[in-house]
Amino acid sequence: MREVDVGQVTEAVARLAIEACTYLGEDVVDFLEKAIDRERSETGRDVLVQLLENANLARDTNRPLCQDTGLAVVFLEVGQDVHLVGGSLEEAVDEGVRRGYTDGYLRKSAVADPIGARKNTGDNTPAMLHTRIVPGDKVKIIVAPKGGGAENMSAIGMLKPAQGREGAIEFIVDTVSKAGPNPCPPILVGVGLGGTFEKAAYMAKHSLMREVGSTNPDPRLAELEDEIERRCNDLGIGPAGLGGTVTVIDVFIEELPAHIASMPVAVNIQCHSARHKEVVI
């Protein structure tokens, strides 16, 4: 049994929160650079160039990529041979968010009493925490700040099984179409198929942690991802919603078996600032 002090988790979460909000992943940068050549719209190409300039400025000046530094979504994979010591794991994560958003001068966007007073919590806590117990003696931490513009365009549908593959595709593409310019395209589209209501939503969000350009290990899902990406790009929304051929950066799908009477389909949209950083302790 390996002991890990939760103070290490706090330090890691604080650092990752700042890095995620400041440094755009190289996979996204690489996509944007290549997308300039295949975007047919001159305006769209100009937008892509500006997105790259913004990423460079954020990196060089150590400032956020976007003023909306989001709610702090945190994924933990805790090895079953780890003994966490030094306090509460959940409190340690929240303390990391508190420090990261304060020390990094990141906007605090969390409000309590969401259908009432909507008073800012003041430190961007609590974290939206998802924890899994996995084999091993390590702790993997992913911090993925999620802004409101893209999150508001996400959707879940409890479809009828008879709607099948085409019905699921239509729901996903329609969600992207309705989103239009609001999530700051080009976007990533995370999809959760099957499971239950809440599990589909979780899978859709978790799928966004994949590297841009990676291939789904399931050939059936890889083909489905390609088809959805093509049909979304055919919508012509384009960069910043100003028209063009590059609407989607990538499509990621996670899947689970579903109940015989259900076909949950969840779509979690992520803006071009696909912010997530990770570390293993």
Rank of each mutant, 00 (worst) to 15 (best):
F31E: 09
F31A: 08
F31D: 07
F31L: 11
L32Y: 07
E33T: 10
E33I: 11
E33S: 12
E33Q: 13
E33V: 15
K34D: 15
K34S: 14
K34C: 10
K34P: 11
A35V: 02
A35H: 01
A35R: 00
A35T: 04
I36N: 10
I36L: 11
D37S: 13
D37N: 12
D37F: 10
R38N: 15
R38C: 14
R38M: 14
R38D: 15
R38T: 15
E39M: 13
E39F: 10
E39N: 14
R40Y: 13
R40M: 14
S41N: 14
S41Q: 11
S41M: 10
S41T: 10
S41R: 09
E42V: 13
E42F: 12
E42H: 12
E42D: 13
R45H: 08
R45D: 08
R45E: 07
D46C: 08
D46V: 09
D46P: 06
V47F: 03
V47P: 04
V47K: 06
V47T: 06
L48A: 07
L48N: 04
L48T: 05
V49H: 15
V49L: 12
V49W: 14
V49I: 12
V49F: 14
Q50V: 14
Q50M: 14
Q50W: 15
L51Q: 13
L51G: 03
L52S: 03
L52I: 07
L52D: 03
E53P: 02
E53W: 04
N54H: 01
A55K: 05
A55Q: 07
A55C: 07
N56W: 09
N56P: 00
N56Y: 10
L57T: 11
L57Y: 13
L57W: 13
L57S: 11
A58G: 07
R59D: 03
R59F: 06
R59I: 02
R59S: 06
D60S: 12
D60H: 06
D60G: 05
D60Q: 10
D60F: 06
T61W: 05
T61C: 09
T61A: 08
T61Y: 07
N62P: 02
R63Q: 14
R63H: 10
P64E: 00
P64R: 00
P64W: 00
P64C: 01
L65V: 02
L65T: 00
L65I: 01
C66Y: 06
Q67L: 02
Q67H: 05
Q67I: 02
Q67K: 01
Q67S: 01
Q67V: 02
D68S: 03
D68P: 02
D68A: 02
T69I: 01
T69Y: 00
G70A: 05
G70F: 09
L71G: 07
L71C: 05
L71S: 08
A72E: 01
A72D: 00
A72Q: 00
V73C: 12
V73H: 09
V73W: 08
V73G: 07
V74P: 01
V74F: 03
F75C: 03
F75Q: 09
F75D: 09
L76M: 08
L76Y: 00
L76W: 00
E77S: 09
E77L: 10
V78Q: 05
G79D: 06
G79R: 04
Q80T: 11
Q80A: 15
Q80W: 11
D81V: 07
D81M: 10
D81K: 13
D81P: 05
V82G: 09
V82Q: 07
H83M: 12
H83E: 15
